[in-house]
């Protein structure tokens, strides 16, 4: 590795302009920029997100105190929403450990924003406008999770399909043998169809929205009132790459507590270290409540990869982890 930047100076000039454009997009809509803390005494309990940990010498306390680097600004942003901030956005670094590849860096730039009174359809429309601002005009395609399985994988109704049917689907699509997954683990076989068969086909010459994820993948999204099997959650794909993830936000404070607890038991069941839950968020939700809103988190470096037609994330950021 050399001292030189991983992106060209030319590319970094474009990056600077795009960052400015993204901020201008929100300022023009009276959405306030918030730079919430990167350090937090709590961490996300999500089993599949790994928070980096550090320790802080707090004056007056003998032992260094553990703090986590945020994986997204979601919790403090929701506390701001509870406190009456109105529409807000965050544009800055987040950290997710253990992943380094052409599309991932451990440290990456995330854009997250919340819009009061927006439902899923409205926030999806705004997301498309924002994406097109950077990558240019592209048609949008709306696809429910169930439709995507039918159209791209030939599974007629994924919510009731068996593990065996999912495995047959993978075999039909010549997906290489999978090692370490239980024969009956339907959720994982279903996930493999999604990542190995469907996702690479999404967003070809379009901005594709996949919405109505199964309720178990709701994370902190509201469950649909019309169909309790599905969550009001969407992801955006362009050229087979996941670009953004949005929810119509769960409001019920007990719901947050329940989902945090479920995630924590999941961690324990899988032998992952438990993490402290954000009680400040739970207090805010209980005392003031979250206004009706929708929010999106968007991978900014990936957006710039698409705009620049680069296949490697390092080509659009000043330095990768390899020579950071």
């Amino acid at each position: 590795m050399t001292w030189q930047p991983t992106a060209s100076i030319e590319q970094l000039k474009k990056r600077s302009q795009w960052l400015k454009d993204l901020r201008a997009f929100f300022y023009a809509r009276s959405v306030m920029e918030v730079d919430t803390p990167i350090l937090s005494s709590a961490a996300t309990p999500d089993l599949h997100l790994r928070s980096l940990k550090t320790s802080v010498q707090v004056p007056g306390i003998k032992d260094k105190q553990p703090y986590f680097l945020h994986t997204s600004p979601e919790y403090p942003m929701k506390r701001l929403l509870c406190a009456g901030s109105g529409d807000i956005f965050y544009l800055g670094k987040v950290f997710r450990d253990g992943d380094l590849s052409a599309r991932h860096q451990v440290e990456f730039t995330l854009l997250e924003w919340y819009r009061l009174g927006f439902d899923l359809t409205e926030i999806m429309a705004e997301t498309a406008t924002l994406i097109q601002l950077v990558i240019g005009p592209k048609p949008t395609q709306m696809l429910s999770y169930e439709q995507a399985f039918r159209q791209y994988a030939g599974v007629s109704s994924i919510h009731v399909a068996t593990a065996e049917e999912c495995r047959q689907c993978l075999a039909r699509h010549q997906i290489p043998e999978v090692i370490g997954v239980d024969k009956d683990d339907k959720v994982l076989w279903e996930q493999l169809i999604l990542t190995e068969v469907i996702e690479p086909l999404l967003g070809q010459n379009a901005i594709t929205y996949l919405f109505h994820y199964p309720a178990r993948d709701a994370a902190l999204a509201e469950i649909s009132k019309e169909n309790p099997q599905v969550a009001l959650r969407f992801e955006v794909f362009v050229e087979g790459m996941e670009l953004a993830n949005g929810y119509q936000e769960l409001q019920d404070s007990d719901g947050y507590r329940d989902r945090f607890e479920a995630s924590l038991s999941d961690r324990i069941a899988h032998g992952a270290e438990p993490v402290p839950v954000d009680n400040y968020l739970l207090d805010a939700l209980k005392e003031k409540g979250l206004p009706e809103c929708s929010g999106v988190a968007l991978g900014v470096d990936r957006l710039f990869m698409l705009a620049a037609k680069h296949k490697n994330i390092e080509s659009v950021i000043p330095f990768g982890l390899g020579n950071a």
């Binding site: 992943d99 380094l100 590849s101 990542t195 993948d217 992801e235 996941e242 993830n245």
Partner: peptide, 14 residues
């Protein structure tokens, strides 16, 4: 070796 880490769910190595 390619790591597949979806935003949600289990990670895999291709």
């Amino acid at each position: 070796n390619q790591l597949v880490q979806p935003g949600k769910g289990q990670a895999f190595n291709r």
